[in-house]
Amino acid sequence: MNDYHIGDIGKQLGLTADTLRYYEKIGLLKNISRTASGIRVYSDKDISCLKFIQRAQKMNFTLAEIKGLLQMREDPQHARTEVRELSHRKLVEIETHLQDLTTLRNELTLLVNLCTGSGEGCPIIEGIEKSQDT
């Protein structure tokens, strides 16, 4: 179990002190420990929570949605119905996103392989132009 100060989190996750204080204020981060002099001390669990928030933000989830998902993460067995429903909706969104990403990856793999084996320029450009036309 490690302790982290705000500066450590900034280095590790790229989050500012203002962001961390804001997350605490709106209830995304709970029960942050403090030293006798009032300095915030974050735990490994807080780091895990912050990483979850960052991942969810990359999926364009709102902070309100993330707050709900964190409740589910904290205590899945006793999560409220609406939190469960939100988690299920988000799971479906992620699955769809994953399928899109997989298709994109496969398409790019093919195009990159074409580029490698092509003696007449790069078909990637042609492929992108064609997809923009449609």
Partner: peptide, 12 residues
């Protein structure tokens, strides 16, 4: 492209 990717083609 879409057809090729759907078939699993990754190279020619």
């Amino acid at each position: 492209l879409d057809y090729a990717v759907a078939l699993g083609i990754r190279a020619t």
